[in-house]
């Protein structure tokens, strides 16, 4: 199919979708309308369980099973990346050359690494109180670790980031989520039901029953998954060279 014909198909398809979308939007409730039946029910259910952040309550309590599915997507995607980006036979590992970095940038990376790590842990810990949660905090923690690569070079990062441990951490996070779910089952109620722990006093760190624990499990898994993901990408982009055209691999 020639490129021109493909453009025509794209144009007509796009136009048809646009017309259908506009027709559909005309009948949607107005932007900013006051009819939110699910919203009110979710808020009352979350308040009944003393969870201040209703969105975390929806994620880790009312729809905890969907979040388990989402965790498995995350786990599967990281697994796929690890398998895809492994080092093949016709490639060799070249130790990364140390890069010269301006001293102020290095100092900034050294100072910001713990601060970013602390911010990530803060976002994870207060998932069920203030905006934040396991997902966002996990990504912040993982990015904090890579400040070392950004501030110095890949060799320094590899020294303090044993990839094996993070792969185990990724699996442990997923397993912890499942174990908490099964614990609900063993506790006599349903899988992933939030009836196991007392709901605690409202707006404190221990409120919300199993929500903070699921939050922490998701935080650990997302952090470790992103570290493993970036480790694979960094290996491919910085270290692994193809064997035959090694001359071609030198210059950029």
């Amino acid at each position: 199919m020639s490129r021109r014909m493909r453009m025509w198909v794209l144009a007509t398809g796009g136009l048809a979708v646009a017309v259908l979308l506009v027709a559909g939007y005309a009948r949607l409730p107005h932007f900013g309308g006051a009819v939110h039946p699910y919203g009110e029910r979710a808020v009352s259910a979350a308040l009944a369980r003393h969870t201040a952040n209703v969105i975390s309550s929806v994620n880790f309590d009312l729809r905890a099973f969907d979040t388990l599915g989402e965790e498995t997507i995350l786990f599967g995607a990281v697994l796929g990346t690890v398998v895809l980006l492994r080092q093949t036979r016709d490639e060799r590992e070249v130790p990364p050359a140390p890069a010269e970095v301006a001293p102020p940038v290095r100092r900034y990376a050294l100072i910001m690494l713990p601060v970013a790590l602390l911010t990530g842990l803060y976002v994870v810990a207060h998932g069920q109180l203030s905006p934040g949660g396991g997902f966002q905090g996990g990504v912040v923690v993982a990015t904090a670790l890579h400040l070392l690569y950004i501030g110095a070079d890949y060799r320094a990062l590899e020294k303090i980031r044993p990839v094996g441990t993070y792969e185990v951490g990724d699996a442990a996070g997923e397993a912890a989520y499942l174990v908490l779910g099964v614990a609900g089952l063993l506790g006599g109620s349903a899988f992933l039901a939030n009836t196991l722990l007392p709901y605690g006093t409202f707006n404190t760190l221990a409120s919300g029953g199993t929500v903070p624990l699921l939050n922490a499990a998701v935080g650990m898994e997302v952090a470790c998954a992103v570290v493993v993901l970036l480790a694979r990408f960094l290996d491919q982009a910085v270290e692994i060279e193809e064997d035959n055209g090694s001359a071609m691999g030198k210059e950029s």
């Binding site: 969105i55 975390s56 905006p131 966002q136 982009a237």
Partner: peptide, 25 residues
């Protein structure tokens, strides 16, 4: 704010790093 936080966390450093490493490779 939760969605904004996750978009910031993912979009400010993670996605650019992934794309630029892929472009380099």
């Amino acid at each position: 704010p939760d969605v904004g936080l996750s978009q910031l966390a993912v979009g400010s450093a993670l996605t650019p790093l992934l794309i630029l490493l892929s472009v380099r490779k």
